[in-house]
Structures are given as C-alpha cells and as structure tokens.
Write a protein that binds this DNA or RNA. Structure first.
Lengths: 334, 334
DNA sequence: CTGAAAGCGCTTACAG
DNA sequence: CTGAAAGCGCTTACAG
C-alpha cells in the first residue's frame, strides 16, 4: 500500500495525493475529500523514510539526558515528548553518563542521524563553548543558560539558578542560621551547580561571611547515594554547621539519611534545604524545603523554542522561567 | 557527501562501497581497506533514511513507558537504550499516561513508523490479549509476563511477582505480624499489581487468614502522592493493622509519610514493606524493606530477547529473572 | 488545480 | 570481486 495505490484508487495522480498528505493548499476540495477518504479506507500511512529522504529532512529530534538518575530530567522528559508528539515530532532519547561529553555525543549523533533538532537536559557550558560550533541544527539547552555562549542555533530555558540559591541562603539567614554549609555539584564546572554555588557565596558575602570552600562545602554528583556520602563527610568535618544547603533534592534526600546516621535530627539539630521540588522532598520525613522549578513549564518552553527554530527558523532565545522557594519542614528558626 | 562521493574518491563503484558499509564478504581486502580509509577521512556516515527505505526496514525500536513517574522504568530505560545502542539500534521512547491503552498506541505507532521492534515497560495483559494480534514486529514486555498470552512475537522478562509478594508476607509473618494490610495497584487489572496481590493473598491464606479486600486492601497508582492518599485511607479505616505491604516503593514512600502524619512511627507502630528497591527505599528514614528486581538485568535480558527476535527471527521467550527480599529497617518483630 | 518526471541516497540482483 | 542499473516511496519543480 503506497502512494501510487492511493493515486490509482482515488483516480488522481501521486502528486496530488502527496499534496493532500502534506496539507498543501493548491488542491481542489473535491480531490482532497476523495483522497482523504481513500487513505482512511486503506489505513494508509506514508513511509516516513521515503518522506524524510526526499525532504532531506531528518528523522526526529534527539534528546540527550545528562546522568541517568536525575528525577527532574525524567519529569521534564515526559511533558517534553508529549509536546513534541503533538507537533508530530518523534523524540529519540539518549542517556549519557555523568562524565560523558554531551556535545561530542551530539556531534556524532548529528553526523549519523541528522536529527531535525536536539535538546539537552542538562549540560556543561564549557563543552558547549568548545565544540558546539560543529552543530548545525536547532538546539535547546534545558535547566542551564546558554545566553553567554551566543550560538545562533542554541536556545536555552532555565531558571535564574544564582538568584534561587541566593534566595535559599537569605531564607536560612532569616531563620537565624549563620553557619551554613553547601553540598553538591562541582566547583570547576560552570553549569548549574557552580551558578548555585556562586549564588550561595554571593548571598553569604553580602551578609559578611565568606564561604569556606575547603571546610563548609562538599562537592558531589546529583544522586541520592552521592549526597549521602558527601553529607557524611561534610558533617564529620564541620560539625558546627546549623544548616546545609543541598544543591539538588536527590542530594538533600541522601543528606537527610546521612544526618539520621550521624544521630542528627532534621531540623532539630540541622536544617536542610534542597533544590528542584521532586517527590523526594515532598514526601520525605521531614518534608524538605526546596526550590521549585516547574518541570512541565520548562518542557513547554523548550518544546516551543525548538519548534519555532525548526519550523520558522526563529532565532535562538534564552528564556528565564520563574522559580519558587517552597517552605516545608526541614528548616527551623534558631 | 554521499556514497557516490566515496565511490569516486576511492576509485570504486557505489556497489562496492555499499558492500563495505554493510560488511558484506564479497569485497577484496584492498578495496575494503581503501574505502574504509576514504570514509574515515571524509567523516562519511550513510544516510539512514535512504538505507532504511531500500532495506524496507524500519527506523528504530520503539519503547513504551507506562506511567510517567515510575522510577523502576526510568532505571530500566537507561541500560536498555545503552544495550540497544551498542547493537546499533536507536530507541524512540513514548511515555504513556497510566490510563492510556498501550497496545492501541503501539498499533498506531507501528502503522505510522514501522519500527523494527517494540518494548513495553509495564503493560496490562488484558489489553495485550485483546489487540496485540494486530502487531507484527517483535516485541518484549518488561516487568510483566506474557507467557500466558501465547503470542509468537511477544517475549517477556519479569520476576515472579506472585512469589515475591508471597515472600514478603512470609517475612512479615515470621516477624510476628498477623494483621497485614496491602496497598496499591488495582484488583481488576491482571498486571503485576494483581499478581502481587494474589501472591499476598495466597501466602496469607496458606497461613489461615483471608485478606479482607474491602477493609485491609486499598488500591492506588504507583506514585508517591497516590501512596500517600491511599495509606491515609487504609490507616484510618483499619487501625489495627501492624504491617502494610505496599506494592511499589513509591507507594511505600508515600505511605511512610502518611504514617508520620497519622502520628505512627515506622516500624514502631507500623511495619512497612515496599517493592522495587529504588533509591526511595534505600535512603528513606527508616530504610524500607523491599523486593529488589534488578533494573539492569531486566534491561539486559529484554534487549537480548528483542535483538534475537529482530535479527535471527528467534521465537518469543519468557524469562523469569530472580528477585531478592532486601531486609532493612522498616519491619519490626512483634 | 493537476499530472508526468526527476531525483533524494542508498541496496541488491544481474552480469561480467 | 566489481560495476551499471533498477528501484525503494516519496516530494517538488515544471508544464499545462
């Protein structure tokens, strides 16, 4: 059952059939109606390989997910693929190890598959700066800003991570905390973790305290297990901390467990704040105060930016969506 | 840069180039070496649309994920796509709402995209029985058995959910619990939740107690929030329960929170067991006793079965992989 | 508005 | 072992 069968059965030529498939205007109503009816009756679906081959277009959009265990990314992925599916786009997702070079992976992928567009869930700006110029298709970086990078085909949608982190510190400060530790991420990176770290440092500095990176900060990946280990180290080393700001909910969740293992109650002995508002912080005991970034809003805006770039050649945009500090039960006033 | 360019530059014909691309044997070593070198030098990658069009083959394998928030599925997806990628297969993933008809979605997808194979992460056997016969490509159902269904192109890999649930009840029983409630899933379904429920009922019955479905069972989706709500209802209704078996970790995690909100300590006032061994049960306070099913083992075996069916036309297999009860801190002896 | 024809980049008999 | 040619199922100028 191919386009020729439909042409024969409907009494029109393949050209006309093709035009109705593609919703082009220059077809008579009569022809359109008839052809649609025949296609319907035959359950005909155009062969996408042939279409894409001709249209010199690409098979789908590729999504690269940084790190396997990231809940927020999983939460974004669902809505994202839904939005894209509504627009008729498939998404092929690739999970990358935390230490994989996402831009390299994307370049290889582009070479092999010629996607129409790509989206990066997370990513390290440094790698983008180095090699993103090899990428030609419209892309969007999600949860991390690409504004500074200035590539014409790289949009981004993100919250203001630095301000959000500063807000957390402000919140802790208002509740009387002066000895605040920070947990997670990686100083060398210039991704979200360093933005958040910077925000925390700035807010502290504005209040006259300099964050002691050697003592009161402990880096770690955004995983429950890593958060657990890192928190144990931090707590052991800096036992005078009254509050810990974990740069991600998964880390905070691990830290909550670590505190329990150290015999510390949260928030009795130690206050804790997370980041992302996943179900981890919503249902833990105690519920963890955190920063919400809306997964479906991020997904929406990302799909929008990508589609606009893919379809209308819209220029790259850098959208900053709002965040919200959600106060729960893990911070006490001292 | 297409196959003709490579042909010209290497001094061979396109047929020969095509043969080396496809690793066919009837090419001289000299030709192969030369052509490979030219391809390498040009960074040439064959156009997959053209290949698939000619090979009348399909673009990729499709994965359907039932429900958006399922951690276990997310954990399977990563390794699964990695295995498949090693074998040169893309995977296009589609997230389905909990109430979506996965087999219908797959039929539509097959119609539209002609995938080489499909994998279902979760799924309702009833729907498979009804309409899977419309599906022609090799498929595998993961975390749920398709053995009873008897379709020649539907493999499955799963643990023995019924035995695992029975094991949980046995464990609770050994610790002195006689009033055991069950939380989660859906009685009408005949998917994993009903298997687990059945296992629990059986184990209870073997010990002379009949599970009161109206009083000591509360159905719910496999989400933290649903587990929370369901647990509150169950606890309010059947306050004499000494233990609750949640049919999933997410549910257990929600239940842990619900217990806290009811002023019940776990395991002091109420013992709790989950299912899946996600990080939710690993790092919660208390850590939750649960059943481990190995995500990467499930992924491995599924990829294996699918590949065998796709490449060698291997018949459907129904593999049962081991589970393990992992004892933690949420069950006390009474 | 419509059809006939060329061609997208490959693979695969068919000859040699 | 290798090349020339046909054709996979579409789309898109080009005529009309």
């Amino acid at each position: 059952m191919d386009i020729r069968d439909i042409a024969t059965r409907s009494g029109y030529g393949v050209g006309t059939v093709s035009r109705v498939i593609n919703g082009q205007p220059n077809v008579s109503d009569r022809a359109r109606k008839r052809i649609l009816a025949v296609m319907e009756e035959c359950g005909y679906e155009p062969n996408s390989n042939a279409r894409y081959l001709k249209m010199r277009a690409q098979t789908s959009v590729a999504a690269f997910v940084m790190g396997v265990g990231n809940r927020l990314f999983d939460d974004i992925l669902g809505p994202l693929q839904a939005r894209l599916a509504e627009a008729g786009e498939d998404v092929v997702v690739t999970y990358l190890d935390d230490d994989a070079l996402e831009v390299r992976a994307a370049i290889d992928y582009q070479q092999a598959r010629h996607p129409k567009g790509m989206v990066f869930l997370g990513g390290e700006p440094r790698y983008f700066a180095e090699s993103f110029h090899e990428i030609e298709v419209p892309c969007v970086l999600v949860t991390n800003s690409a504004a500074e990078l200035g590539f014409p085909n790289l949009s981004s949608v993100t919250i203001d991570n630095e301000s959000a982190a500063a807000r957390v510190v402000e919140h802790l400060w208002e509740h009387g905390h002066r000895r605040i530790g920070v947990l997670g991420g990686n100083r060398a990176s210039n991704g979200i973790s360093s933005e958040r770290l910077r925000g925390a440092e700035r807010a502290l500095r504005e209040r006259g305290v300099e964050l002691d990176l050697e003592r009161d900060y402990e880096p770690c990946p955004f995983l429950e297990s890593s958060g657990y280990e890192a928190a144990r180290r931090l707590i052991a080393r800096a036992s005078d901390l009254t509050a810990v700001f974990a740069l991600g909910d998964a880390i905070a969740f691990g830290a909550l467990r670590a505190a329990a293992d150290e015999g510390l109650s949260v928030p009795g002995d130690l206050s804790l704040v997370g980041f992302d508002d996943t179900s981890l912080s919503q249902f833990s005991v105690p519920r963890i105060t955190t920063v919400r970034q809306g997964a479906s809003l991020l997904a929406d805006r990302s799909a929008h930016a990508l589609l606009a770039a893919m379809r209308e050649g819209a220029p790259a945009t850098h959208e900053v969506v709002p965040f919200e500090l959600v106060e729960r039960e893990s911070v006490r006033t001292i």
